[in-house]
Design a binder for these strands. Structure first.
Lengths: 173, 173
DNA sequence: ACTTTTGATTTCTGTCCCGATAATCTAACT
DNA sequence: AGTTAGATTATCGGGACAGAAATCAAAAGT
């Protein structure tokens, strides 16, 4: 007479809802509701497809499957958000390293500056970006532009390294 | 005898809770609970301070107030997420434009390619990044490296522009 | 008269409950 | 064997509730 009956495995399976997973109820301020819902419904809006320029056979299309995977700029370029900041470049003393006027630098304060690192330094109250040289016990800031001269750091200078430049971003449009 | 009494204005004011705003209840999948809570409690984790290299007086410190404001790379570099993708650079034909081997390009398909734009193009099944020239009715792809020659586009070529390069990102570390 | 205490009131937050809906299983039926 | 219908269990969103928090106003204290 009875259909079914109490048994394991019966009923709606878990994780068959909208999110494919069990859910928790939380309170969200009204102002941030839209961004949270966007995060939930469409995943990370800024995880965008990455193409490898080396693979160019077969006339691929941007609408194809993205076998190279997806990339989020923030995650890719910023490893420690708490110790990272940006600097807008002034001057052309590092043009040989691909750092141009008005470029944006990503700087991490938590990295220990090593020989040949590009660093943000303050020398006598002046903010500069240079390549750090630690050769033979002396410290020097090396520009990458023949117009400028290397700057040897001496004990009487107010010298501080703010951080190590991890990336440079140049905008065309 | 009665203290207080029914009246308007009494009671806890609205918006005095944890979020300073009225809240709504939503369901969040367990797996995304931590990221949603991080978004709510600490704001945008990737909105980082921006310094202007031109302002260098007074020996500022990264721990000072950030009068230049905060910047989010995704918002700053990606205006239309739906039509934007990344390309990893292969080759050195655009080194004069600051585009090096293994750099990351941000490409927007929704921008109409104009004269002198840096574009991602497919010519005869080959993916290239070049500066677009539309002078005098003809179309050409101009490298920025004297080792390479300009490529004039003729009618018999399979030619397609994938998008306009809006930024180039070079990583040091 | 001024300050402090105390109860009343109202809102916030997290949790529980519940009905409607949805998805699956098993028995009954064709 | 294939279909149908009841049983079972999970999801989803709304209502409700207890405890905490914040404010008001009267009462009590100085």
């Amino acid at each position: 007479m009875v259909r079914g009956g109490k048994r394991s495995g019966a009923g709606r399976p878990r994780g068959t809802g909208k999110f494919g997973e069990s859910t928790v109820r939380i309170r969200v301020p009204e102002g941030k509701l839209s961004v949270v819902q966007a995060l939930l419904e469409s995943g990370d809006q800024y995880a965008l497809p990455l193409f490898d320029g080396r693979i160019s056979a077969g006339f691929p299309s941007p609408t194809d499957d993205y076998s190279e995977g997806k990339l989020d700029l923030n995650h890719h370029l910023i490893h420690r958000p708490a110790t990272t900041f940006f600097v807008r470049v002034s001057g052309d003393s590092m043009i040989g390293a691909g750092i141009h006027q008005d470029d944006l630098l990503v700087v991490d304060r938590s990295l220990s500056p090593k020989h040949q690192d590009v660093v943000i330094a303050v020398v006598d109250s002046e903010l500069t970006v240079k390549r750090l040289s630690r050769k033979s016990g002396s410290v020097a800031l090396m520009p990458e532009n023949p117009v400028y001269a290397p700057l040897e750091i001496t004990a009487d200078m107010a010298f501080e390294i703010w951080g190590v430049v991890t990336s440079v971003i140049h905008q065309f449009r």
